[in-house]
Design a protein around this nucleic acid. Sequence first.
DNA 1: TTGTAGGCGTTATCAT
DNA 2: ATGATAACGCCTACAA
Lengths: 324, 324
Amino acid sequence: METVGRIAGVSQVTVSRALNDPKKVSAKTLQRIQDAIELTGYVPNMVAGALASRRSKLIAALVPSITNVIYADLMQNFINVIRGSGYHVLMAETGFSQDEEQAVVSTMLSRRPDGILLTGIHHSAGCKRMLLGAGIPVIEVWDTTENPLDVCIGFSHIKAGEEMARYAAGKGYQQALIVSAGDERALRRKDSFASQFKQMTGNPPIEVLYEAGATIERGRNGLSTGLEKGFRNGIIMCSSDLLAHGILIEAQARGLRVPQDMAVLGFGNQDFSPFTLPALTTVEVNRANLGRRAAEALVARIENEPLPTKSIDVGFEIIERAST
Amino acid sequence: METVGRIAGVSQVTVSRALNDPKKVSAKTLQRIQDAIELTGYVPNMVAGALASRRSKLIAALVPSITNVIYADLMQNFINVIRGSGYHVLMAETGFSQDEEQAVVSTMLSRRPDGILLTGIHHSAGCKRMLLGAGIPVIEVWDTTENPLDVCIGFSHIKAGEEMARYAAGKGYQQALIVSAGDERALRRKDSFASQFKQMTGNPPIEVLYEAGATIERGRNGLSTGLEKGFRNGIIMCSSDLLAHGILIEAQARGLRVPQDMAVLGFGNQDFSPFTLPALTTVEVNRANLGRRAAEALVARIENEPLPTKSIDVGFEIIERAST
DNA sequence: TTGTAGGCGTTATCAT
DNA sequence: ATGATAACGCCTACAA
C-alpha cells in the first residue's frame, strides 16, 4: 500500500480508503491509485486487514460429510452466496461425532471467523461454551428448535417422520420396514415414523439400521436383511433416496415388483429420484434454498441487520411418484 | 498471550514458544502456562500469527463443483490430510470456467494462502501470472503434463480414452455410442476414444454431448438420443458412471438387455457401480489416494521437503463387470 | 531457558 | 479530501 501510494502521490492511508470506501476519495486520486495498483500488481493483504479491523471476513462451516449430496448441495449454495458478500469459507468435516465437532470448532476459532455454520442442533457442552465465548453469530442448519445457540434454519424431523407415517398408513399399507442410516436426525425421523405408524395401523415397523452413511449398496443389503427379518408386503421407509434406490435395484434383482409387492418411500428428493424405475416417492427439502437462506441469515447477523426470527422453518413436502 | 504469561509468571514470548515449540520451554513453566491457558480460556489468534510469521497455514482449494462426487471425494481426503498437518482449507467452486477460476484465485490470494490446489492443467494467462507472482506452491490435480505450474498429480486422459477404446474393440464391439458431459477432461477422453476406436474398427462413434454435468437423467436421455441418432448394437462409452447408470435404467425401461443388446462402459468407479443391474464395467481412479497424495505433496512443497517428481501419475484401471 | 525490541500490513481515530 | 499516529496480537531476531 505504501508503494502504491508513493506512485500515486498519496499516503498509504488514502490507498486503504480508496479500496474500502472509494467515495471518500476524490475521483482523480482514485484513478491514479487504480493505475498504480495496476502497475504494481498489488494484491491486498486480508490477513493484515483482519487483524487491524477485527473482522476476518471468514466463515467457518462444519458439515458431517462433504461427499454426502445432502450437505454438498447445501454448501455449494451457502459458499456461493456468502462469497457474493465478500466472505470466504473455511470448510471442515465433523463426521457425525460431537467430539470431532468440538475439536474442529476449537481450531477454527483460532482463525477468528466472523460467523460459523454448524450442522444440527446437538453439540457438546464444551463446544457450546467455546462458541458462546467467541461471541460470534452461529447458524445451525438442517433442524429447528425453540432454543438455538443463535439462529437455526431447517425443518422438524419429528414432523417429517410423522407425516411420512400418515402418508404410508393413509395409502393403506399395513406393514412397514424401515431402512435407515445411523445419523442422529435420521434416527429421529425413524422413531417418529415408527410410533405414528404403529399408532395408526397397530403394527410396529421392522427396522434395519446402519451405523454408517447411506449408499446404494446398503440399500440393496437393507432389503435383503428386511426380508430375512420377515418383511413381506407393505411399505419401506428409507432415511435417504440413496438407500431407496438400492432397494429398488435389489427388488428388481429379486423379481419383486414395486409398488405392487412392496412400496418404497425415500427421503431427500435427489436429482436422480424422478428417474429411477419406478420413479421414487420421496420427501423434498429444498437444499439450495436452505443453503442460500442460511448464508443470508448469517451475513445479516454478522452485519447486525435485523432478523425476523431466530428459528427458520423451511418445511418439507412429500413428492408422490410411482414407487408408492 | 500477555495475560496468560502474566498469570504463569512468564513473558508473552515464552507463552508463544510454549505453544509453537514446547520443547524449548522447561517442563514446569510449560505446566504453569498450560494451567494459565486453561484458566483463561485463551484461544490463539492465527490471524496475528499469520501476519507476523508470514505463513498463513491456509490452503486454497478450487474445484469445478463440490456436488460432483469426483471432486467431493478428492476434497474430503485432501482436507482431512491437510488438517493433520495444521493447515485449514479455503474452498471455492470454479464451475468449469477459466474466467471464474481467475476471479476466485484473485480473491483467494489476498488471504495469503501457503499453497493452492487447482483442478486441471488449463488456466487463463492472467491466472498463471497471479500464481507465479504469489510465489506459492501450486498443485494441479486430475491431469498430468510435462510442464505443470509447479506440481501436478493425476493421470493421462488421452491414455484413458485410448485404453477404453482398445478394451471396447478388443471385446469385439464394432459400433460405439459416446455419451459425455462437456468438461474439458471428459472431452479429451472422448476424442482419444473416438480416434482409437475408429482406427481399430473402421467405425467412428456416434456422439451425444451435454454442456452441463453428468446426471442419471442425462444418462437416460443420452441413450434415447443415441438411439434416435441410429445407434443399435455395440458399446456405449460414458464420461461418468452417473451417465452410465442412467443408461442402464433407460435400457431396462425400454426392455433392452445389457450387455447382450448393448454394452455399457462407465468412468470413475463410484461406490454404487458394483451394485447396478448389471454391475458396471468402468475405469477406476483412486480418488481417495489422489486427494491424500495431493495433500502430502503440497505440504512437502510448502515445507521445502524434497519431492521426487514434479508430475505424479496415479494411473487408472479398467474394472470389468457385467455390463460389457 | 527466558526476555527485549521491532515489525508483519492493515484499519481506526483524530487532525488538518 | 487527505494525512499522521497508534493499535491489532503475534513471531523473529538477538541478547541475557
